[in-house]
């Protein structure tokens, strides 16, 4: 090959490279443009909620809506808090959420331990049967559970909001898988040392599976915050009403004349705790979610 030929080739190559670089930049610009537009669409409802929540009624009623409020009226939030009685709803929901999370964790840990570490007859068959119940839609249980709790006279109590959902087969499954990853040698060593099962569970298993337990806690709390159908069915009295239910009820007006800015302020107040949890505990939520496929 002559020297001339080589420089020709190099020139060709650099031209090809330049074209590839231009293509690459164009593709990247396209990607960012698409993702940017999609992100705007996804985020727009939140933006709309926030700007509407601080508008005056007059401004909100304009034929062409403003994209930035002229006057920021924070008093809407005070009105929202009062109209929807959010204080009581918040306390009720927190109470139900905290108590049911704690009890649920205890039950889940004990069951997962039995399924992961203890030997007993019919263990695997029972575990398989439990997993099979996950396929059944929850509504099928609701019909009978509604009758059961009526017979127990649990209507309009905290018990009815907590007890029926304490056992989650999915959480037991999740934690059992985690427990199984802990080497059995640790358990045997603890047995040789004469450590009791409960002490071993508390000192070794629980600290080692803390991330899973945190995921369960968050999902359970979010579940309480977002639960709607069951609470409306069984505890729709003033004293036990939960937050989602209360929010929906507070702004269902027969005249259709709803103060939307105040309504949006209430929605923002109800959404805020969820966002805070999301910002600080994102890792655990995503981990729990990617394995569950269920919402809350």
């Amino acid at each position: 090959m002559t020297a001339q030929n080589i420089t020709m080739q190099e020139k060709d190559m650099s031209r090809v490279h330049a074209r590839q670089r231009v293509m690459k930049i164009a593709v990247q610009v396209g990607l960012y443009a698409f993702l940017g537009i999609m992100a705007l669409i996804v985020i727009f409802p939140f933006y709309f909620m926030l700007i509407s929540s601080v508008k005056s009624m007059d401004e909100y009623r304009q034929t062409v809506q403003t994209l930035w409020p002229r006057d920021i009226i924070l008093h809407n939030y005070v009105d929202a808090f009062k109209t929807a009685n959010l204080g009581t709803l918040f306390l009720n929901t927190m109470y139900v959420g905290v108590v049911s999370t704690i009890l649920s964790l205890v039950i889940t840990v004990l069951s997962a331990f039995a399924f992961a570490r203890l030997e007993f007859k019919g263990r695997d068959a029972m575990f398989a049967a439990l997993l099979a119940t996950m396929m059944i839609p929850g509504e099928l249980f609701t019909i009978t559970n509604y009758a059961t709790i009526s017979a127990f006279e649990w209507k309009n109590t905290y018990t009815v909001l907590i007890v029926p959902f304490l056992v989650s087969v999915f959480y037991i499954y999740l934690l059992r898988q985690n427990f199984l990853q802990i080497p059995n040698e640790l358990y045997l060593a603890a047995k040789v040392d004469g450590t009791s099962d409960l002490k071993y569970l508390w000192k070794v298993m629980i600290p080692l599976s803390l991330p899973t337990l945190i995921s369960i806690t968050i999902l359970k709390m979010m579940g309480a915050w977002n639960s709607y159908v069951w609470p409306r069915l069984v505890a729709n009295d003033e004293a036990h009403r939960m937050i989602t239910n209360g929010l929906r009820n507070a702004f269902t007006d027969s005249t259709g004349d709803v103060n939307i800015p105040v309504q949006m302020a209430a929605v923002a107040l109800v959404s805020t705790p969820l966002f805070l949890v999301f910002i600080f505990l994102r890792k655990y939520i995503m981990k729990g979610v990617s394995r569950s496929g269920i919402k809350g």
Binding site: F46, S52, Y228, T244, R248, I260, V270, L274, F275
Partner: peptide, 26 residues
């Protein structure tokens, strides 16, 4: 950003969508 809609309350944000699509603002 794309994960944000997951951590929302479907009733609450449904009310936001209703307001957005509402033709008769009031």
């Amino acid at each position: 950003i794309f994960f944000l809609p997951y951590v929302t309350n479907s009733i609450a944000i449904g009310m936001v969508f209703a307001a957005m699509f509402n033709m008769i603002g009031n």
